[in-house]
Design a protein around this nucleic acid. Structure first.
Lengths: 150, 150
DNA sequence: CGCACTACTGCAATCAGTTGCAACAGCGTG
DNA sequence: CACGCTGTTGCAACTGATTGCAGTAGTGCG
């Protein structure tokens, strides 16, 4: 099956942000463009403050509250998902990373994505009691293999 | 060996805090007493700011930084564990609640403890790749049975 | 009992994130 | 192409949490 698992819409979801906003009666502004530009060139994770900094580096004038409010909107459109790192700070998951939960090592601070079979396994554990796990919002903390042997 | 699974130290861990501190060369101060007093009468969860407020209500003069620093110390003694609620704010788990992970419903905001068999099941999922899950630090987000049918 | 060592506290500054509000500016209309 | 509706921005104030630092005060020792 050569069926592409990734459709164009999945690959370039950012291209249509403007239209998606329009469709909901929302507006396309320079500030939102700055945020989207940064996100479009980000794969994986980015924290709120990091995003703000990168927007500012892009000359566009943005203020934190605007960035956070824009992120709320983008999350409603399903373009990003937010979670909280091990230290509780906000962390936005972009692209493929938005689909998976994460494993966080308490010792070295690194993190990994939870792959599909394991995500399903976790979901199954709680499916029995009727609880539908949101796989993208799961962060499991522990100690990674390397740190354990070290 | 009828080894009791719960020793007196487990049941009343707060009684010996002072000694535990002493053993590590740490000190017993009015502020720490206030924090411990509040925690000793708390079962389950408490947020940082809630704890501060309750300490202040106890007449003792405490300042936020001291409370948070005291919590760090108590966490090192294993008397509390901290996690982060769905909104990322700090949440301290006290007593029995410190032992379990939590299930959080994104819709109604309620949460439940993850029971032993299920905690083990989750741990097992990642044991295969050498990752040792810290069961007390797990918070799984999703939608609970009630909200799903509603 | 009083001294000294050093852990601990309080303060003030700072960071991350949120919110209310008045002014601003997309963008559809006429 | 100007107008105006209403979504959006920036500001300022605020909450929760953290940190550096100077002064304070537990605690062991003589």
């Amino acid at each position: 099956m050569m069926s592409p698992r990734v459709t164009p819409a999945d690959r370039r979801p950012w291209d249509s942000v403007r239209e998606q906003l329009h469709d909901r009666g929302l507006r396309w502004t320079p500030q939102r463009r700055a945020v989207v530009d940064v996100l479009a060139t980000t794969e994986g994770h980015i924290t709120g403050s990091e995003l703000i900094e990168r927007c500012r580096a892009r000359e566009t004038k943005v203020v934190p509250s605007t960035v956070y409010r824009t992120l709320d909107v983008l999350e409603q459109l399903g373009l990003v998902r937010h979670g909280h790192g091990a230290d509780g700070r906000e962390e936005f998951h972009v692209g493929a990373a938005a689909e998976h939960g994460h494993l966080h090592c308490d010792r070295c601070g690194r993190h990994w994505e939870i792959d599909e079979p394991r995500a399903s396994a976790v979901a199954e554990v709680f499916g029995g009691i009727g609880f539908a796990v949101d796989p993208s919002h799961v962060t499991i903390v522990g100690v990674c293999a390397e740190c354990r042997t070290a």
